[in-house]
Amino acid sequence: MNDLMKNARLRTLARLTFGNTASRVYLGLVVAVALFVTVDTLFVAHEDASFAGVWLFFLAAPTVFVFFVGTSLAGAETGGPAWFVYLGLIVSVLVQACALGWFSRLLRGVGHGRSTRPQGA
């Protein structure tokens, strides 16, 4: 029974993160910007540094900054190692996609006049 509950929770989180229009649009925008940043970094010559990567941080804000504050509190240098920055970006984007899905579901529930009481109450 415990495994069934864990599976149901994981399915719910996956549905909230990937299974609605708001989350999909957000994740699609993040993928498009990540592709732009990759192409700009690898194939475009710049005299100075490119600020294309800043757009990823704008899309991942504000949750990405929790990772940076956490690393600075742990005593690491600013931003930490590259793998930690990438991990922070990925987790931040997924958390925000899940939050968008939850908010979207909340708005759909309010818009359809659903009751906030549990079933059978």
Rank of each mutant, 00 (worst) to 15 (best):
W83P: 00
L56T: 03
A49S: 15
A61F: 09
V39L: 08
N7H: 09
T63F: 09
G120S: 14
L94S: 08
N20I: 03
G109M: 02
L4G: 15
D40T: 08
F58S: 09
G111M: 07
S104Q: 13
Q96I: 04
L59S: 00
L100P: 10
L16G: 08
A45Y: 15
V91K: 03
F84G: 03
L56C: 02
I90V: 15
G111Y: 07
R114T: 15
G88F: 06
L13E: 05
G111F: 00
L73K: 10
A60K: 00
N7W: 07
N2L: 14
V39F: 07
L94K: 04
L59Y: 04
G70L: 11
F58P: 05
V31S: 07
T41M: 06
K6N: 15
R15P: 01
A49P: 09
M5Q: 13
R114Y: 08
G79N: 08
G120L: 14
S104D: 14
N2G: 10
H112W: 07
L59K: 00
L89K: 02
T12A: 13
A97H: 01
L56N: 05
V110W: 14
A45L: 14
L89H: 02
T38I: 04
W102Y: 15
V31Q: 04
Y86C: 04
L107N: 13
L73A: 05
D48A: 07
S104G: 10
S92H: 02
A60D: 02
T21C: 10
L106A: 14
V33H: 02
A14G: 14
Y86K: 09
L94N: 06
Q119V: 13
G109E: 05
W55F: 10
S92V: 03
V93Y: 04
W83V: 00
S50P: 06
S23N: 05
N2A: 10
G109V: 01
L106M: 11
G113R: 10
A99Q: 01
T38G: 09
V93W: 03
F67D: 01
G70I: 07
G113M: 03
A60Q: 03
F18Q: 05
G113N: 04
V33T: 01
V44I: 09
V93C: 02
M5H: 11
P118D: 14
T71G: 07
Q96P: 10
F58G: 07
A34L: 02
F67P: 00
A61W: 06
R9S: 15
F57A: 04
G79F: 12
A74Q: 10
F65N: 01
M5E: 15
V91Y: 03
F84C: 05
T71D: 12
I90P: 01
L16E: 08
T12H: 12
G88I: 02
W83A: 07
L87Y: 09
G120D: 12
V93R: 01
R114N: 14
A121I: 07
